[in-house]
Each structure stands twice: as structure tokens, then as C-alpha cells.
Simulated assay, not measured.
Amino acid sequence: MSTELTPADPCATEFLDRAEIEVEGRLVDASNATLYCGLSADGVQAHCVYKPISGERPLWDFPDGHLAWRELATYLVSEAAGFHVVPPTVLREGPFGPGMVQLWVDTDEESELVDITAPDEVPEGWRPILRAEDGAGNPAVLAHADVPELRAMAALDVVVNNTDRKGGHVLNTAAGVFGVDHGICLHQEDKLRTILWGFMDEPLGDRVRAGLERLSRELDGELGSTLAGYLTAEELHALRTRTRLLRAADTYPEPGNQWRAIPWPVF
């Protein structure tokens, strides 16, 4: 009898490292090679997203390293802070060479945490982000839920300087709330683009505050040494600075006015 791996399994990353990978399909909407794969080892099964480095398109504004490295680095930052809002992620060899392997999580499509609705249909407690019109000219509102995991994810986006937190990158699952697609994070220049602006100017709260304190310590220790293998010295310095400044402010920031603060499309 086989068992299915979950994100909470303490051996998840070890399993991802050693499991046999079998490519089952490709996510055609992704801009870089993104493969849906089965994993199996010792009677345990799972699925993953495998993004081989060989399938990455060069980006003029992210010329250093690889997108797969940034995916791993963001996972390590989330774990160090105790946020746990990125699925288990490793770098390893795969059928098309080295790349990022991330545990696949099934979403609950009946319980989305980000949505576009009519103004009078925004769920109670949700945070409106953007007011616009739909294709027919009717008023519409982009909004997101207010749950602890999204507060942690919003803080993670700030410190890793996420340039592309779309609504479709927020997954509500039976195993928890997760963010995915972090290949264009951790640039040294401010580029934050996210749909999670609903908490701006509010206090960080105890969980996020404690997480940033842990992250600061880890960045000055083993985590910093590990990330130095994936980020430039300037990027690592900027990560430490953003973490320190967010801790000092103790509030979620407002959007900047020097760049577009919401990704497009928003999903």
C-alpha cells in the first residue's frame, strides 16, 4: 500500500531529493518550462512541479543566477521565518537536468482567497485592493481574504521583493495556504508587485514580528551562508535590509509610486 506525501511531512524535502521523477505533463500557461511530474520512493507517492534550468528564458532584469535558485531561496526564507507558506522545494537533477522540484498541492477551487467580484458581493472581512470595470463596463473589485497565512505571505513578499504575486499564485489547499512561482524574487532594486496590499499600514502582528526576528538571526548565520550560493552579494544585502526595515516599521508598507505595484494580469 502506498501513501501520499503532504507538505507538513517533516521528511518532505528529503523525499523530494531522492524520489524517482516521471514526467506526466506540462503546464502550458507558464512562460518557462514547467513540468507536472509524479514522484515515488519506498511506497510513498506524490506529485511535483519540476522547472529545469535548461528551460528558463533569459530575463534582462534578472541577469544573475537562475530562476530555480530564487525559487529555492524564497522557500528557505519562508521556512526560516516560520511562515511555511511555500510548498517544500529543492534543487536536484531531473529528467532534463538540474532544476527546481516543488511539491504539488491541490487547490480548493470552491474556497479561493483572492477574487474579482461586484462591489456588493465582496465577502465579509475581505480586503478590497483595486476598483475597476469588467469587460462589459460593470464595476468590479479585486479583493483578498484576511487570514493569518496571507498576512505572513504579504510580509514574505516584502522581504523577498516579489515582483509577481498574482492571485493565481495564492493556493488554498486542504494542507494549508501556499504561494508559488517565486522565480522573479530577491532583486536588489525595489520591484514589489503583489495583490496582497489589503494589510497596508496595519501592525505586523505577533506571528509576523516573531518570524522576522528569527529570519534576521538566520540571515546573519547559516541561512545567509546558504543563500550566498544562490544570490549575489548585493541581493543578499538587500534581503537583510528589507527584513530589518520591515521589522523596524512594524507595519505593512504602502505601494511605492515609482513602479507599478500590482502585477498584470492580476491572475
Rank of each mutant, 00 (worst) to 15 (best):
S2K: 12
S2Y: 12
L5I: 15
L5S: 00
T6P: 07
P10A: 08
C11K: 12
T13S: 13
V23Q: 06
E24Y: 09
E24I: 08
G25E: 09
R26T: 13
R26Q: 14
A33Q: 14
T34H: 02
T34V: 13
A41F: 02
V44K: 00
V44H: 07
Q45C: 04
Q45P: 08
H47F: 07
V49K: 03
V49A: 03
Y50F: 14
L59N: 09
D61N: 11
D64V: 01
L67F: 07
L72F: 15
L72N: 10
T74K: 03
T74H: 11
V77K: 09
V85Q: 05
V90D: 08
G94S: 03
P95S: 11
F96M: 08
G99K: 11
V101A: 12
T107D: 11
E112Q: 05
L113K: 03
V114W: 06
V114E: 05
A118M: 11
D120S: 14
E121F: 13
E133R: 12
A136Y: 13
G137R: 03
A140S: 10
V141R: 08
D146S: 10
P148G: 06
E149Y: 05
A152V: 04
D157H: 12
V160H: 06
D164I: 10
G167W: 02
V170R: 11
G176F: 01
V180A: 01
G183W: 05
L186H: 02
H187I: 01
E189G: 04
L192G: 07
I195V: 15
G198M: 03
F199T: 00
M200T: 00
D206L: 15
R209F: 01
G211L: 07
E213R: 14
G221S: 08
G224Q: 06
L227C: 06
A228N: 02
G229K: 09
Y230H: 15
L236H: 00
H237L: 04
A238S: 09
R240S: 13
T243R: 01
T243S: 12
L246E: 05
A248F: 05
A249D: 14
D250G: 10
Y252T: 09
G256Q: 09
Q258P: 12
R260S: 13
A261G: 03
W264N: 07
F267E: 10
